[in-house]
Design a protein around this nucleic acid. Structure first.
Lengths: 191, 191, 191, 191
DNA sequence: AATGAATGAGTTTTCATTCAT
DNA sequence: AATGAATGAAAACTCATTCAT
């Protein structure tokens, strides 16, 4: 087994351990036991427990970040928004363990890590807010505080994914996207 | 200082410590230092670190739980929903430290605690889902999967409170309720 | 046993352990076993192993430093030099364990510690060199490179104390001082 | 590269590493990195870390030992003493890295090694003491405790070499020998 | 009731050494 | 002979909890 494969293997086992027990309850011993390697081997590939956790999360953040495409206001916006949601959901569902980590151990690992995560969320939020403001000018998005609109959309998505990934709700990617989009479209009250 | 007062004082200081640093980063030392009592004294009033954390959260969960009033389908529903949101937000904003704890250390304290928190959220969720289903039958709530509608509403509220309480966004209780209600009412796309 | 006493006790036991085994071979476990306390207790009083070692050495360096009195060139110099040697020897023989540490583990503990020790030795050296240069001007000290003269004197003293303290040579303080002084006075060849 | 050359190369690189960082701070990793060989290769040539260190020191001790010539009391003694000093200094300055090791990591590597070093020093010391006692009988050396005279001479030499090799003082071999000899001849006080 | 010194189980981390390739 | 991945024993250090005063 070459270095890269071994590294990925440990990373992958660590992901499962973190997903199952959470960051603090996961001991390096649990990880190496899961990976079937000696304790020292772990430190051959990763600086420490925090580093491997960070790498797991970073990889996912990068993938999520890349899945988001800036909305082109020259073209129809609705579909682009829906596509963005679809891609984000796809990436997150593709690696449910990491998504579980992301949604559960979001805070409390350590202050520096908290800041990094917050920065990412703010970046996504800003991106989304921009799209919504564009949409408002073009009359596609309802007027109002776009910052909050973006926030609510993220909250709804987050909660949905949490249920699916952590609680095991059985919804397909398409169903999730449709439900979310429909919610964003009409709200829930008829009035 | 009598027993009850001393107990509350430690509880209160612990709340601040947990709110600021999170559960794991908060050491019993930090708590007793903040409360100005000896380490041993802490254990006269609380079983252990987990117990005081749980009590802080439990009290809040109880208050939130009590603030929710079952929607009476015989009377106009909209206002009752809005009132429920208003009361929940009021309770949560009234004790921002605990709310911060609730929204940050949601998981990872220990498996038993995680389950308790989950149970509460599910209870609220079920309650809300019931109201929405009532509303759907009475034509007030848009048709659709009420379970998901409830979820989205909770996610939006949760995210909003997180920003206000953790990130320091400056919104009044009234503004929060209005924004949320308006979002629930119309969604964000105009279409 | 109050905090100060306990601290001193651990310090004292650590001194013996370091003196007997050297810094690197001395484990924190050895120290706490010698002191008859639990491992955690050690860390209650000292930051870490390096800190207690440094404190032991620092205390001695301070005492040695204070035992050195600047030579007053207005008064007869010989006696003052002899008195300085006497006092240094007295301090060092008074705590043979620490002296053993000082002469054995002089280097290799860690770079920062090495620098501190070197700085002290240079200070003593400079002081001595100054005295010798005064002495040369007053015709009491043989002409020559005072820097080297000071160095040789220190080397001779160091070696003598090493034998007495580490190898167990049986010389009284007075004998040591006399032998050293006599050596400084006449050298060893008759020519 | 044949076995002997490879062995010498590793030995030589290890010497530099030990000289720079001291025994304990030098990791096998540092040595193999410096030598440009794989970790396993190191163990093909040397039993363990202690063995290579010991060999480096042993070689030097052998050379120093061989450089010392027993003083022939039938011939003029002074020159023979000076020649001995000269040769010792020559050998030690010829390999400054090892000399640095010898003067710095004098103790603390491990008990057995400490004993070996001590044995060597005692041998040299005994040799020198013998010469001085001869010299005393022939009226060339000042009367007194020859054991201590030998010790002081060694201390002075040791300190001088330490400054030159570790602190970088710039003295030629000849200057070192002259200064030391002159010190041994007259001491430093005029009286 | 209160104190705070003491405890020691539990974790992380390092690094000399081995061994399959 | 050489490699370097893997090993695991050995240390250091933390901190929730206890208990004698």
């Amino acid at each position: 087994m070459d270095k890269t494969a071994r590294r990925l293997q440990i990373l992958s086992e660590a992901r499962e351990v973190f997903a199952k027990q959470g960051y603090h309850a996961s001991k390096v011993d649990d990880i190496v036991a899961a990976a079937g390697v000696a304790r020292g081997t772990f430190y051959l590939y990763f600086q420490d427990k925090r580093a491997i956790f960070e790498e797991i999360v970073d990889r996912m953040l990068t993938r999520v970040g890349m899945s988001i495409v800036r909305v082109d206001v020259e073209r129809p916006v609705e579909n682009q928004i829906k596509e963005n949601i679809r891609r984000i959901v796809e990436v997150l569902l593709d690696d449910r363990s990491t998504t579980r980590i992301l949604l559960s151990d979001a805070r409390g690992v350590d202050p520096q890590f908290d800041r990094k995560l917050q920065a990412f969320m703010e970046e996504v939020h800003t991106l989304m807010q921009g799209s919504l403001e564009d949409g408002q000018q073009r009359g596609i998005v309802r007027p109002g505080d776009a910052r909050i609109q973006a926030l609510f959309a993220m909250g709804a998505l987050r909660e949905m994914l949490f249920q699916v990934v952590v609680r095991g709700w059985d919804y397909s990617q398409e169903a999730i996207v449709d439900e979310l989009y429909s919610f964003l479209e009409h709200g829930l009250l008829r009035v």
